[in-house]
Simulated assay, not measured.
Amino acid sequence: MLLALLLCYAGFTALCLSMPRHHDELLGSKPSARRRQGLKLGGWLLLGLSLSAAVAANGWSFGLVDWFAVLMFSALALVLLLPYRPRLALALAGVSLLACPVAAWAQC
Rank of each mutant, 00 (worst) to 15 (best):
residue 99 A to Q: 02
residue 89 A to H: 11
residue 79 V to W: 13
residue 23 H to Q: 14
residue 2 L to T: 08
residue 90 L to H: 15
residue 59 G to Q: 03
residue 86 P to Q: 10
residue 8 C to M: 14
residue 61 S to N: 02
residue 25 E to A: 15
residue 19 M to D: 07
residue 37 Q to M: 14
residue 18 S to A: 15
residue 77 A to Y: 09
residue 9 Y to A: 03
residue 52 S to E: 00
residue 19 M to C: 05
residue 108 C to D: 00
residue 62 F to H: 00
residue 17 L to E: 03
residue 20 P to T: 04
residue 107 Q to S: 09
residue 31 P to L: 09
residue 37 Q to E: 11
residue 75 A to F: 14
residue 17 L to H: 08
residue 24 D to I: 08
residue 50 S to Q: 04
residue 28 G to I: 06
residue 71 L to W: 12
residue 82 L to D: 01
residue 47 L to C: 07
residue 59 G to C: 06
residue 82 L to R: 15
residue 69 A to H: 06
residue 41 L to P: 01
residue 67 W to L: 06
residue 21 R to Y: 15
residue 80 L to V: 11
residue 83 P to S: 10
residue 96 S to A: 15
residue 83 P to E: 11
residue 44 W to H: 12
residue 6 L to R: 01
residue 29 S to Q: 14
residue 97 L to G: 01
residue 30 K to F: 10
residue 105 W to D: 00
residue 96 S to L: 00
residue 63 G to Y: 06
residue 83 P to F: 14
residue 14 A to N: 03
residue 14 A to P: 02
residue 23 H to S: 11
residue 94 G to D: 07
residue 108 C to P: 02
residue 1 M to S: 14
residue 62 F to M: 05
residue 48 G to C: 05
residue 77 A to E: 05
residue 11 G to P: 04
residue 4 A to V: 03
residue 16 C to A: 14
residue 12 F to D: 04
residue 84 Y to N: 11
residue 46 L to G: 03
residue 93 A to H: 07
residue 99 A to M: 11
residue 24 D to Y: 15
residue 32 S to C: 12
residue 95 V to F: 13
residue 31 P to D: 08
residue 108 C to S: 08
residue 64 L to V: 01
residue 30 K to W: 10
residue 16 C to R: 13
residue 73 F to A: 15
residue 65 V to T: 03
residue 45 L to E: 05
residue 60 W to M: 08
residue 40 K to Q: 12
residue 31 P to A: 08
residue 15 L to E: 04
residue 38 G to D: 06
residue 80 L to D: 02
residue 66 D to G: 06
residue 12 F to C: 04
residue 46 L to E: 06
residue 35 R to Q: 13
residue 24 D to M: 14
residue 1 M to A: 14
residue 85 R to L: 13
residue 72 M to R: 13
residue 67 W to D: 01
residue 45 L to T: 12
residue 1 M to H: 13
residue 48 G to V: 01
residue 89 A to C: 11
residue 76 L to V: 13
residue 23 H to L: 08
residue 19 M to G: 05
residue 84 Y to E: 09
residue 2 L to D: 03
residue 90 L to E: 06
residue 98 L to A: 13
residue 18 S to F: 12
residue 94 G to E: 04
residue 76 L to H: 13
residue 69 A to Q: 06
residue 22 H to P: 02
